[in-house]
């Protein structure tokens, strides 16, 4: 007899716990104010979906005169743990005809980058920064190798030296 009572008590207990769980899902089903899912491609242009500090990729900010802060010293290349950065420098004459070493190409392999942030932290002139672009999918992996300094750009410090020399 006690076996039968236990059998039905177990069924009742099971139904009770199932009801407790179902009540929570039911509660969220009828309260649309608590919906947390978002439709991804649609919200992309409506609001900022990543924070300002988001580590999307390494970029080199340029000002309106197409000038950057990179001296081509190569500290970022030295500190990168997996060889994502290659620095190619060249020698050009400055105003006084003196040969100076400037950056030719700052090559950044996004496919190898682990986003540790050491290059940005060690840069003595703050030439590098994080970009917030996060949709990096491409069909060809060679497209993930980027040249960070824009064509025709120059080092900011060099022109200020030139201006000082002019004035």
């Amino acid at each position: 007899m006690s076996g039968i009572i236990k059998y039905f008590a177990d069924i009742l207990h099971g139904l009770k716990t199932l009801w407790a769980g179902m009540r929570i899902t039911g509660k969220y089903f009828v309260s649309p104010g608590e919906i947390v899912t978002e439709q991804y491609p649609e919200i992309r242009h409506k609001k900022q979906i990543v924070s300002d500090r988001f580590k999307g990729e390494v970029i080199m900010p340029h000002d309106e005169n197409n000038q950057h802060n990179c001296t081509g010293c190569g500290v970022c290349e030295l500190n990168c743990p997996n060889g994502s950065i290659e620095i190619i420098t060249k020698r050009i004459p400055d105003e006084n005809g003196k040969m100076v070493r400037v950056i030719d190409k700052h090559i950044y392999h996004l496919s190898m980058c682990t986003f540790c942030g050491l290059c940005i932290k060690v840069c003595p002139t703050q030439a590098l920064a994080w970009g917030q672009e996060f949709e990096h999918a491409v069909y060809d992996r060679t497209k993930l190798t980027k040249v960070l300094n824009k064509p025709g750009s120059s080092y900011k410090g060099l022109s200020s030296k030139k201006k000082e020399a002019k004035s």
Binding site: R53, F54, K55, F115, C116, G117, K121, W130
Partner: peptide
């Protein structure tokens, strides 16, 4: 996490001696 150090899962935020940069 994302607000303070920019990444959600693999945040290399500690560095010997302290933190990479200040929190938000």
């Amino acid at each position: 996490f994302e607000e303070s150090f920019g990444s959600r899962l693999l945040h290399s935020f500690n560095t010997p001696g302290g933190l990479m940069h200040d929190v938000h």
